[in-house]
Amino acid sequence: MTTQVRTLESAPRALAQRAASLDLGKYGGVMIGLVAMVVFLALTQQGFLAPGNIMNILHTNAALLVCSVGMTFVVLLGGFDLSVGAFLALGGVILAKLVEGGLPPLAAIALVLLGGLVASLLTNAGLIAFLGLNFFVVTIATNALFGGLALVVSDGRTVSLYDDAFIVGLGTGTFAGVPLTVIVAVSVAIVAGLILRQTGFGRMIYAVGGNAEAARLSGINVIAVRVVAYLLCSACAVLAGIVMASRLQSASPTMGAGIALMAAAAVLLGGTSFLGGEGGILGTVIGVLFLGVLSNGLTLVGVSGFWQGVITGAVLLGAITSDWLRSRLALRTRRSPQS
């Protein structure tokens, strides 16, 4: 009898635990918002659910998804990378210059990715992980550094990629009706998700993000984990630059403007805590979809482009508040069994 009462009393807790294991608590708010937006737009905007429009949303946000996936790694560590926009722009511009110079596009892509990794190792990854410098200060500096380099390399101009069939094909081609850029972005998200969920390195990221000192004492090489996370973030930013340049069939030194904050917004909306140690790629994908549908929907509804920024900002403030509420509730839930 006593056991039965205990079971009944603990049922809500068990449900909560099950929900938590499915990350419903993290994604619940943004999922409800996303579904509500989709239902509203489907009912009020003819053509919102048209396959062409759905593909537009995915195509438009492919680069943001790649960038946000990379950002997820460093946010899970309790860090942040303000320089992803500069890495993105520099990657796109160097790719365009290399292709313009006659290098085969695949070789140029490989070279740009490699260059991005080296640049990150010497700056973000090296300075933050090895020297322990503040990630905001370092990435503000590298944002200026690589953003400036993008201007130098391009001479401040937009470099055309219109003549390269491979790049144009990557940016405009489809496979089974799905844009290639979307396939690339989803593939990156799947691989990142597998890394985080199925590998020891993924578990180390959560451990370091949750409590770096405890992770170090348990034998995890915290510096190496941080280096790899920042390298992955930069590599994703450069890849996002390649995706964006191929989509626009050109690369400009300013094309990464604003993407760092959008990526951070997507990661935050997706339930990854800015304190680190909590969240994941699925949430980031949902966050990107949320922002993509919001932007698409506001344009369809006819909201002025200027008001779109105001609304997006308000939504993000709501997300930050809900993140704070969620962490407070989680803290209370953890404390309550002892009381």
């Binding site: 050109s250 094309m255 403007a257």
Partner: peptide, 22 residues
């Protein structure tokens, strides 16, 4: 008439793709 609030080629591409769909 649409306003490119970001003054970016990406936003122009997004708007043009929506016009293409519509």
């Amino acid at each position: 008439t649409q306003a490119n609030s970001e003054l970016s080629p990406q936003k122009s591409a997004e708007i043009a793709e929506q016009l293409r769909t519509r």
